[in-house]
Simulated assay, not measured.
Amino acid sequence: MTTIAYQGEIRFSRFLDAAGQPVAELPDWAAQADTLVEYYRQMTLARQFDTKAIALQRTGQLGTYPSLLGSEAIDIPTASLMREEDVLIPYYRNHAMQVIRGSEWRDVLLYWGGDERGSANPAQRQDLPNCVPIATQCLHACGVAAAFRIRNEKRVAVTLCGDGATSKGDFLEALNVAGAGNCRW
């Protein structure tokens, strides 16, 4: 029996300590006050939309609606840093990302109100529609990324998932597919 020891390293970056005091210089993309103010504005808008949508859902004026509470802090900068040719493979809480990528907030309301036209916004470029089943978007992203690799395109497939997705087979299968993607096609 052979035992293989992992000799890897997990890198850790931190810019603020627990009290909010700076401990390192901000990266170039965040060093501009305009950028951070715009991210904060978009996060505040997303949070306000979320509050209103939850109220609509609880009063029966909107169908099923998954809150984006807490995810806007990663969704806004991630979508803002994506290039136009990149592809977003959203999961059901990525409303803010879809809006940054060209959808309108009314499209979000249409979709969660049961109207599929809310996911067919032409401004979304080649972005995929919402993925409601948990973790399946991870495999979709692997397929899109594989197509980019086969075509030798310098594009990125972006997806996110919540911590609940990490216990699903789809997530684990996506890790395997992504790892196998290092081989030559």
Rank of each mutant, 00 (worst) to 15 (best):
residue 160 L to W: 05
residue 95 H to I: 04
residue 91 Y to D: 08
residue 171 F to A: 10
residue 151 R to E: 15
residue 58 R to W: 06
residue 74 I to Q: 11
residue 149 R to I: 04
residue 102 G to S: 02
residue 15 F to V: 14
residue 125 R to H: 15
residue 165 A to G: 14
residue 135 A to G: 09
residue 35 T to P: 13
residue 142 C to Q: 06
residue 138 C to S: 14
residue 93 R to V: 07
residue 158 V to F: 10
residue 14 R to F: 01
residue 108 V to H: 00
residue 61 Q to D: 07
residue 176 N to T: 09
residue 10 I to G: 04
residue 18 A to G: 12
residue 76 I to S: 01
residue 77 P to T: 08
residue 78 T to H: 00
residue 153 E to A: 07
residue 159 T to L: 00
residue 140 H to R: 08
residue 104 E to N: 10
residue 169 G to V: 03
residue 83 R to N: 03
residue 132 V to F: 07
residue 64 T to H: 13
residue 80 S to K: 09
residue 101 R to K: 01
residue 13 S to D: 12
residue 157 A to D: 03
residue 51 T to F: 10
residue 170 D to M: 00
residue 145 A to H: 04
residue 15 F to D: 13
residue 101 R to F: 00
residue 128 L to V: 09
residue 97 M to Y: 00
residue 12 F to V: 15
residue 37 V to F: 08
residue 95 H to V: 05
residue 184 R to L: 08
residue 94 N to S: 12
residue 98 Q to Y: 01
residue 43 M to H: 06
residue 159 T to Q: 02
residue 47 R to V: 02
residue 7 Q to S: 15
residue 126 Q to G: 09
residue 1 M to K: 12
residue 39 Y to F: 15
residue 126 Q to W: 06
residue 102 G to N: 01
residue 130 N to V: 13
residue 88 L to A: 06
residue 150 I to M: 15
residue 159 T to S: 07
residue 74 I to T: 13
residue 161 C to E: 02
residue 30 A to W: 10
residue 167 S to K: 08
